[in-house]
Each structure stands twice: as C-alpha cells, then as structure tokens.
Design a binder for these strands. Sequence first.
DNA 1: CGCGGCTTTGATGTTCATCAAGTAAAGTGG
DNA 2: CCACTTTACTTGATGAACATCAAAGCCGCG
Lengths: 231, 231
Amino acid sequence: MPEPVDVNTCKSCLYRSFLFSSLDPHDLIRVNLSKKEMEYHQGEIVVRQGDPIREFMYLKTGLLKISQDIGTYGNQIIGIAKPLDFIGLLSVFSEDHYQYSITAIEPSSLCHIPLELMKEIIIKDGPFGLKILGKMSEMNEKVLQNRLQINRRNLRGRIAYILLQFSQEIYKNEKFTLPVSRKEIGELINMRTENVIRILSEFRKDNIIEISGKEIVVLDTQRLQQISEFG
Amino acid sequence: MPEPVDVNTCKSCLYRSFLFSSLDPHDLIRVNLSKKEMEYHQGEIVVRQGDPIREFMYLKTGLLKISQDIGTYGNQIIGIAKPLDFIGLLSVFSEDHYQYSITAIEPSSLCHIPLELMKEIIIKDGPFGLKILGKMSEMNEKVLQNRLQINRRNLRGRIAYILLQFSQEIYKNEKFTLPVSRKEIGELINMRTENVIRILSEFRKDNIIEISGKEIVVLDTQRLQQISEFG
DNA sequence: CGCGGCTTTGATGTTCATCAAGTAAAGTGG
DNA sequence: CCACTTTACTTGATGAACATCAAAGCCGCG
C-alpha cells in the first residue's frame, strides 16, 4: 500500500518543481492544503489503466513505468518517467479514464493534486495555464520522438539506445542498476526477451558493457553511441 | 505559392470549428482581423522543419501530411491530418522551431493566427486555455496511439490498418483516391515501398480490394479488419 | 524525347521471432 | 527454514518475415 507522507509544505516541495513558481500565494496555499504526498514501494501500482482520472500527479523522486495492456499481445511499455517529466500530463485533460497504467519501478514519491483544483487554477490563472500547456507539449513531444527513435533502429541499435538512455538521461552514470527485467526491456523497445538477453551478452563479450544480473557498467559509451546510431 | 483568401469572416469560419465558440466577442474580432486564410495546392509545403513557429494553424479543408527528415534514413511520416485534427498544436507551445514539415497532400485551406495573439488570449481567457489544453492532449494521444498501433502489427496488418484508416476515418467511403505514393505509405507505416506494393497486390488477388493506380475500392472491410487485428 | 522518380515482380539473404530446454533466482506455504 | 512452485534468465536451433538487390516498364515533366 502507498503511504501518505506529511513532511513538506508546498513551499519547499514546489520550490524544487518549477511548475508552481509563479502561482498566486492564495492558490499556493490551496494546493498545499489539498495535495497528498504518497510514497510507493518498488513494484507498486500508482494508477491502473481504466481508473477514473481525479488527480494531477507529479513525480518528486523515484522512477515510474508507463504501460498499456494490449490484450493478447501482452504489454506495451510506453516509456519511463523520471522526476520533472510531467508524466501526469499524459491524457489528463482529454480523457476521464487512464489510458495507461503507471507503476513505480523504484521507490517513488508522488504528489497528488485534485484535478478539479488544477483546472480551476488554470481557468483563473492564465499564465499558469500557458505554462502547463508548454510542459504538456514538451512531454508529449518527447514521448513521441522516443517511440519514433526506437522504432527506426534494429535490435542492436535499440539496446544501445536504451542503455545510453539509462546511463545518460536517467542515472547520469556509467554504472547503474537496471530498474526493469529483461522482459520489460523487450516490452519497452519492442523486441523479444530472448533477443534482449542475446544482445546484452553480445555487448558483454565485445567489452562494451559489464553485466552482473541487473548491474550494468557501460565501458565504451562511444561504441554504444555508434551502435545506437548505425546499428 | 499559397494563395491568400479573403472570403470568410471568423463568424462563419469559426462556427464550423468548435474551438473558438466561447470566445469573447472582442477577442473574436481581433482573431478575425489578424487571421490569414491561405489555400495550398496539392504538394505544396505549408511549413518546413526548422522554420520558426510564429503562427497557430488550423486546417479547414483538405489533407496534410506531417513528416520528419531523419537524415540518412530518409523521411518519417508521423501522420496524416484532416480538418478538426488540430495538427497545429503539435509542438507549438514548447518549441520555437518546427520539428516537422507539413505538406498539403490535397488542395487545402488553412487558417493562420499569430501565435502571440493566441497566447495572449489563452492568458486572458482561462476557459479557452483549458479547452486548448484538452484538444492538445487529445491530439497528442491520438498520434501516439496511432504510432503504437502501427508498430505492433506485421506488414499485412499495417497495410490493412492504413487502408481502413483511409476508408473509414478520412474519406468515409470504401472508394477513395490515395493521396500519397506507395513510397509515402511505406514512410508512414514503417516498411519498404516494395512490400507496400507486394501486399497491396496480394490483397487485390484475394479480392479484398480493387486497385487502379491510386484509386482504391475496399471490397471486404471485414476481412481487412481481421487482417489489421490478427495479421 | 529523354531523364528521373514511381511502380512492379522476382530472387536472395539477413534479421528477427519462435520453439525448446535447461539453469538460476525469487516467492509461497507448510 | 526448507521443499515447492513460479518467474526470470540464458543459449541454441529453426523457420518465417522482411529488407535488399536487380531489372524492367511506366509516367510526368522539363
């Protein structure tokens, strides 16, 4: 079960996010009063595909996976969200039920704000609405480009691409622990688990990476970039 | 060259779009005064990837293709936009240069509104901003889902899928004229031109469709749906 | 009328999914 | 805590799906 937390006022919480910076003090207080901050354990489900959307969410710390059940075809992972990624904006303003499931793949802390309050503030505070518009546009763009990037690569390129993403975008370190299984990597970059494993082993044999279970060390970033680019 | 048109006031123009319906009369007049309506011939480029974004655009009639140059790898067609698709919302609020090229693939009429004016109105008119937010969310969702749908199908499934899209979503008729070349279909659904042709011929031989150049008649919609679903 | 791009079909090879089978790791209940 | 079950991981072999290469006809356009 997710655990409610009650440590931060929005002052400090929102200080870190740059989203609410310009908000009218009165509105900030209202957000502060009605927000709920929750901690999720690794593996815990944050929202389930099909649930009604009642809140705007914002990832403070941790890592999430956004996925979609596609019946017989299994599970499609759309992407991985890190703090400041505004994954809560995905279809919040156009649907009334979640099109995606969201799962914590690392211990995560999320801030929940009633959607009605958000809408109210957007209506009242034009510049804030415009800011949300920008963030949303940005995030959607990023997700779409990510999918396009993945799909135009061959399997080796996809593995290289995703390893670079973990190393450079997410953990900012050549050494990191995979937050997902081999199977999930396959679901994320559209390939079979067996081939994920095969190509990872291949990279290991070629001294491009070191692997030990979920521990990865990128030894040759440049080579990875080359494979990501040219296959 | 695109030709400016000067026939409609926003009263009638915007009546058809449901976007501006709630706008303050004063703002409506301002939009009306500064909007430019332009006609594009088939094949004409509306915006070029890399151009600065200065306008919000809205397709009144016709058909557009949204594409992206990906260097050595050729050209990726992201999608096809029809009236009411709000393709103008793609990355308008997060980027200052177009990430995509937009080309008329049928004679098209577009309404151009200065982006600054749009932003100004969004800031002033909260409910309008919220409406834009909803439309944008909706459109992004649609584009993303479309890409995911395409990429999880095999080649036969992709052709079936895109034929159904033309027939049911775009032309609402079993008989239609392809607005794009075989090559472009390949760029749209991620496959080689040769295979586009091969599978179209296959469908013809199986009496699922009739083909004559760019003229297509869907003879067996149900079969197409089945192939789209199960490959 | 000739050039370049689009269309078409066939042949070939590569890439990848699938099947199979075994080991390791991680939960689960007694 | 240990037997048991399940899930994750790994490697190899095979075949299907798809890209690529090649060659020729077609069409539109300068």
